[in-house]
Structure formats: C-alpha cells, structure tokens
Design a protein around this nucleic acid. Structure first.
Length: 723
DNA sequence: AGCACGCCGACT
DNA sequence: GTCGGCGTGCTC
C-alpha cells in the first residue's frame, strides 16, 4: 500500500486530493504544511500538503510535480488556527489556506535568506526625498526603507544601480549602516508617563505573559488604550517576541503607523488588503523571520506568519470590518483568539463600546475584563443632549438648536462635527406632480441624488444615471430632493456659515487616502471649521478642536428590523461623543430624533454604554438571539427566483435536527441587487455544536445539489448583518 | 473554479 | 459541410 499525500488546492471543493510523492522522494519526508505544485486535470495548481495517508493502489493517482518547502509555510499555531477556521466557517480548506498566502508566494519559491550581511536604516527627510528623481535608484532604495531597516541582501536587487544609490544616500546622510542584530535597539521616542489605570492594566497583562488569556480592555475614547498597547508591545519586543496589532479598515492611517514606528524599537510592518502583490509578498517574507517585529494591519493581517508571536492586540474589537463579507467569511477577532490560544500568548481586545459577543464572553468567564475609566489628561466627558425635532421644520436636516450650537462653537474659535450616515445629496429624487421616483432597475431601490456630480447613483450596485432635469415620467418640473445626505448638509452649512470652511469626509469626498489625509490635516490645524461626514468621521481620529458634535438623524437605528441596529447606534453615539471635547474644553453632543423618549437614549445617557449593553444582552437572552444562540445564513442568488427557492427549500428540508431552528427561504432584505435575485435561509441553535453538526451534514447536500452550479450560494457562519 | 467533452444553429 | 453556443461532469 503506497503512502500518499493529501493536498488542499485553492478551489471551492470540500475535500483535499490524493497524490503520490515526486520520483524518488519518500512521502513521509514531506512536511504537512508544505506547498507543492500538482497536476490537476489539464492544469497545474499550487496546493498545501494537509496530511499523509495509506491507500489501496489506485491507477488514478498522479505524482506531485514539485515540492517548494522543506518545512511548513505556516508556524504551527497559525496552521492550527487555519484548520479551525476552515471547519468553523465551513469553508474549503484549500481556499482558507490560500487566503493566508499572498498570490505571488503561492507560486514562487522562497528567496534564500541572505547571509548575515549589513542592513541599512533610513533617516527620514521628506524634503531630501522630494529631490530624488522619481523612479531613480536612490528613490527606490529610500522607499524600500520606509517600513524599517532592511538587510542589504534584500535591497541589492532593487535596481542595477543599487550599489551606487547606497553610496549616494550615505553621502546625503539619508541612510546609515546598521548591524543586523542592532535592529532591536533602534532608539525611539520616550513614552509618556502612564496614569494609574494604565499602569494597572499593563501590570495585570504583563504578569500573565507566556500563557493564553483573552482580556477585554474597555476604555472610553481618550482613556489611552494605545499607550497600554504600546507598553505591552515593548514588553513583548524586549522578550525577543513579535506582536500583531489588528485595526479596523479605516484605522490604518499614516498617523497610526507613524506613532507605532516612533515609539517602538523594532520594524513595524503595515499589512492590509490594498498592498500590491510585490509589497504583499515582501511583507509576508519579512514576517516569516523570527526577529522581533510588529505587524499592524487590517483583518487579513491575522494571517501574518510571525513565528515568534508573543502578543496580539485587536483595537476597536467591535468594528464590523473584522468580518470578511465574501468568500472565506472569517471574523479576524475570533480567528485571532484561537491563534492566541494555540500560540499560548495573551490577546487584548480594546474598545470603548465592546461587541455584545465579547461582553457575553466576559460574562461567561472566558475573557478577563479590565477598565480604563479616566480620560487621559484633563478632558471631561461631553454633555450629551437628545434633541426633539418633532415640532420643528428642519432646514436641510438641521434644527435651530443644532445651528445655534454650531454657531457658538465657531464664535468661540472652535470646531463642529456633523455626522450623517448617508452619502450624497438626498436619498430620493421624487416628482411631486406624478409621484415618480427614480429606482435602480437592477435593484429596485431608490437612486441617491448626487448633486455636484449631477448623477443619480445606486448605492447598492453602483449603477449611475445622469440627473434628469424634468420628471422622466410626466415631463413636469416637480422634481424635489427628499431626505438628507452629507452633500446636502455640507451645502446647507456652507451657505449658513460662509466665513468658515466646511470640510466633508465620506467615500465620495475622500476617494484616496491622500485626500482623506488632506482634509484631516486641515482639521488638525485647529482653525474654526465644520466637519461633515459619515462613519469615516466617527472613528478614531483625535480632533482636538471639536467641541460640538451633532448626530443629524438617529431615527434609522431605533426601529430597524435588524436586531443589531440598536447596538450600532449606541456604539455610534459613544464614538461620536468621543470626538467632542478631547482638548481642554468640555464637549457637547446633540442627537436629533423624532423619538426622544426612546428607551435606548434613556439607558445610554443614564448609565452609559455598559448600561445599554446590559439591557440589550438581557433582551437578546430573552429572545434567544446571538450571543445567546448561534446562527448561520445560507444565501443564494441567481437571475431567476425559482431555482433559488427550490435550492433553498430543499436545503432547509435537509436540516433535520430539532435543536436547529430553520427560517426560510426568505427574500434577502435587499432582494434584488444588480439584476440578481437573492434569498436566504437562517439556521439557528442554542448550542453551537448542534448548529455545526447540522452544517457538516448539510454541506455535502449543498455541493451535490443539481442546482448548486446554476446559482451562487454561500454559507455565512456568525453573520454580522442579515443582509 | 476551470476545462473538456458533447450535442445543436448560422457561417466560410 | 465546419465553428461555436454553453449544459454537465470531473478534477487525486
């Protein structure tokens, strides 16, 4: 009986495939976790060995073509976390493993590690950098060092002129030579003194180092969570270990990176899905070294190799961007906890507004809970007021009280922030004569009016149309913009306050990171101004000059069918409040609503986020909703509704476990998108193990279903939104 | 997911 | 008479 190798290939197929070892290589000598090139039908694929096996001789077995790695590509704890994630999220292992390998690394053989050579370190000088000709060898060399020191063996290949470029940069004083083992001692900015709460948190976390423990670090905005992270990372680096920091999608700003780089005596690697193939592959290779370093990145950074991982930090752990929304639908926070467990290291989840899942884990005794109560420095918490706008005629969404508050902030030389969770000028364009309103024909949802661009835009599928001047139905002049978007707020505020800049921050105004930074830089300059924007504005940025923050419309979060809408509204209010009054002046937060008596406001304003969370958790428990139940969503989409319903109905019928509740098939909340019909089945169980057992039995049924190839289907375990 | 194999319409 | 449409079936 020949020994064979099981290989997971990057395809949406549930099982690995069996191969013979290459000529004259013993199967047993090939490591689980090694990349291999295999023949697959008429093509060749790069897969990963996931196991060995014995098999009756089978004429169909083909040999592996090439073996890439003498050792596993992933460190053992990461490997275990990946195996767990593929099972937990019921996703083909080959695709799960492929997400953890940058595309070029999936194919190329590793460059041999350089012999112990000299490294170069940058002395950053933007003015001098600007004088280097774009694309020239010295410019390339400079840019390659921005992320931290690099060994010459890596730099030499940048261009044929690398050697003379090095000489040039040394002459200009832009780089300095560095012995490789000195990288750990790069001198840095001294840390500010920690307050008592921060010191306690650091002490408690450092004391338990070297063992797996999950700690929720709950601290209001401005309480100095980042300083705690930095102190913990310094400890890890001092032990010769590596640290992994995950931040939300919009949190990986140049300021964040600069802050970490200034303070930490080790290379800090930025890691996000926007990295080009080459940069991604370089980051991957660098993160395979076992020298002290920090990887800071978005969701996908949870798969950075880091063989000497000693600490994981998840900042803003409640942020929904940690959940992948397509393909391999993992939650980076949850994968990180499993990775920390297999690594035997501490993981810290930081937030001012923890996810209810996380609070439930605290309640169950699985996570430890530390609080940072005091705002760092002398800033006081802001005064939050609910503004009843029922009796008022709002002007472009703004009430008298809000306008007065903004005016007085500006008069005092301060800044104001206006939040509205809707891009564009107005969510609907409507004809008052005949009742026409523009609907996207592929989605059956209203077009959003973008006035400056003179377009109607479907925010669902991206389709655009020119802005009609007359009603397309009755040719009348009765078209009116209904509702309020950020663009309208911007225009209204600019008209009302013509002497101060109105800066808008949303996906339309900040298309590039560069534009985004430019707007923020103007706000940072501290001159009076009004900032208008979406989510982008609510998170993380330290805006010292803002003393008034307005939530223009809180109503959508109060009466949504999505049980998570109130959680998101509460988090938003706390986050926006965190933007106001971080300087020396006390901030003021206004919330405009037609439902001022709503319990959410009473609870949140009376007892803060913890009180809200307690109430929401008991409600969820009473209704057996997550986190007191486990959910999975089976979605399907196709051009026609009929095959979707048949497929979903038969799938739903195949679940025959009375511990699993099955709802559907139901039309998805946005049942049509980009010309596709969508529907779903919700599976729910009080015990996660029962849900997973049912899913594992369901999976082969789905794959084998005759309709499965005629539509697109997916399973989403722990769905974060039910659409 | 690819890619081949396989049976029916408009083209040099 | 062929080029090619995409239905369905398989890939160790």
């Amino acid at each position: 009986m020949p020994t064979i190798l099981r290989v997971a290939v990057p395809l949406p197929l549930p099982d690995p495939f069996d191969y013979l070892p290459p000529e004259s290589v013993a199967a047993a000598s090939i490591a689980v976790g090694a990349r291999v090139r295999v023949p697959f039908g008429a093509r060749e694929l790069i897969g990963v060995v996931v196991g060995h096996g014995e098999v009756e001789r089978s004429p169909r077995l083909r040999p592996i073509l090439a073996l890439f790695d003498p050792r596993p590509v992933f460190p053992e704890p990461l490997w275990q976390a990946l195996l767990w994630a593929a099972r937990y999220y019921v996703h083909p292992l080959g695709e799960a493993l492929a997400t953890a390998l940058p595309a070029p690394v999936r194919e190329r053989l590793d460059a041999p590690e350089g012999s112990h050579d000299q490294a170069l370190r940058l002395r950053p000088d933007p003015a001098q950098r600007a004088r280097l000709r774009a694309g020239s060898a010295p410019a390339l060399l400079y840019d390659a060092l921005v992320d931290g020191p690099q060994p010459w063996s890596r730099l030499r290949g940048l261009s044929p002129q690398s050697t003379s470029a090095r000489r040039r940069l040394l002459q200009l004083g832009l780089v300095e030579p560095l012995a490789l083992d000195a990288q750990a001692r790069l001198a840095t900015t001294a840390p500010p003194p920690l307050n008592a709460a921060q010191q306690q948190a650091v002490a408690a976390l450092v004391a338990s180092h070297g063992a797996f423990a999950t700690t929720l670090l709950e601290g209001v905005t401005g309480s100095g969570k980042t300083e705690v992270y930095l102190a913990l990372i310094e400890h890890a680096l001092a032990r010769g270990e590596q640290a992994l920091v995950l931040v939300p999608e919009i949190g990986l700003t140049p300021q964040t990176l600069a802050r970490f780089r200034e303070r930490l005596a080790a290379p800090v690697l930025a890691w996000h899905s926007g990295l080009a193939d080459g940069a991604r592959a370089r980051a991957f290779e660098r993160a395979r070294a076992d020298t002290p370093m920090v990887v800071i990145g978005t969701r996908s950074a949870v798969f950075a190799p880091l063989p000497k991982l000693g600490l994981i930090v998840i900042d803003e752990e409640h942020d929904p961007s940690f959940k992948q929304h397509e393909g391999f639908r993992y939650h980076a926070r949850d994968v990180a906890v499993v990775r920390a467990k297999h690594s035997g290291v501490a993981i810290v989840l930081g937030s001012a507004t923890p996810a209810l899942e996380t609070l439930a884990n605290v309640e169950r005794g699985r996570f430890r809970h530390l609080r940072l109560d005091a705002r760092a420095g002398h800033a006081q918490p802001p005064a939050v007021e609910v503004v009843d706008v029922r009796r008022e005629r709002l002007q472009d969404g703004l009430g008298g009280k809000a306008l007065d508050a903004i005016a007085s902030a500006l008069a005092r030389g301060e800044q104001a922030l206006v939040f509205r969770n809707r891009r564009g000028f107005a969510p609907v364009l409507h004809c008052i004569d005949c009742g026409w309103h523009g609907d996207c024909d592929r989605c059956e949802r209203a077009f959003t009016l973008h006035r400056a661009r003179a377009r109607l835009v479907c925010h669902h599928c991206g389709r655009e149309r020119p802005l009609p001047r007359q009603c397309p139905a009755c040719q009348g002049e009765g078209l009116v913009a209904v509702g309020i978007g950020t663009e309208r707020l911007e225009a209204a505020l600019a008209q009302r306050f013509p002497t101060v800049p109105v800066l808008r921050l949303d996906r339309d105004s900040a298309r590039s990171a560069d534009q985004f930074e430019r707007v923020l830089a103007r706000a940072h300059a501290g001159e009076p101004c009004i900032l208008v924007g979406t989510q982008m504005l609510a998170k993380g940025h330290d805006l010292h000059g803002v003393t008034v923050a307005l939530i223009a419309d809180a109503d959508a979060g109060l009466h949504s069918t999505d049980p998570r809408a109130s959680e998101r509204l509460a988090q938003l209010i706390i986050q926006v409040a965190g933007r106001a009054g971080r300087g020396t002046r006390r901030g003021r937060v206004l919330i405009q609503t037609h439902h001022p008596e709503h319990a959410l406001f009473r609870t949140l304003l009376g007892g803060g986020y913890p009180a809200f969370a307690r109430e929401e958790l008991s409600l969820r428990e009473a209704l057996a909703l997550p986190p007191y139940s486990a959910q999975a969503l089976l979605r399907a989409e196709a051009r026609e509704r009929a095959p979707i319903d048949q497929f979903l109905a038969e799938a739903a019928a195949a679940v025959s476990d009375d511990a699993v509740r099955v709802a559907g098939p139901l039309p998805a909340p946005h049942a049509r998108r980009a010309g596709y019909e969508r529907a779903q089945v919700l599976l729910e169980a009080s015990q996660r193990s029962r849900l997973h057992a049912a899913l594992e039995r369901l999976l082969p049924v789905l794959h084998a279903h005759p309709l499965a190839r005629r539509l697109r289907w997916s399973l989403d375990v722990d769905p974060i939104a039910l659409d």
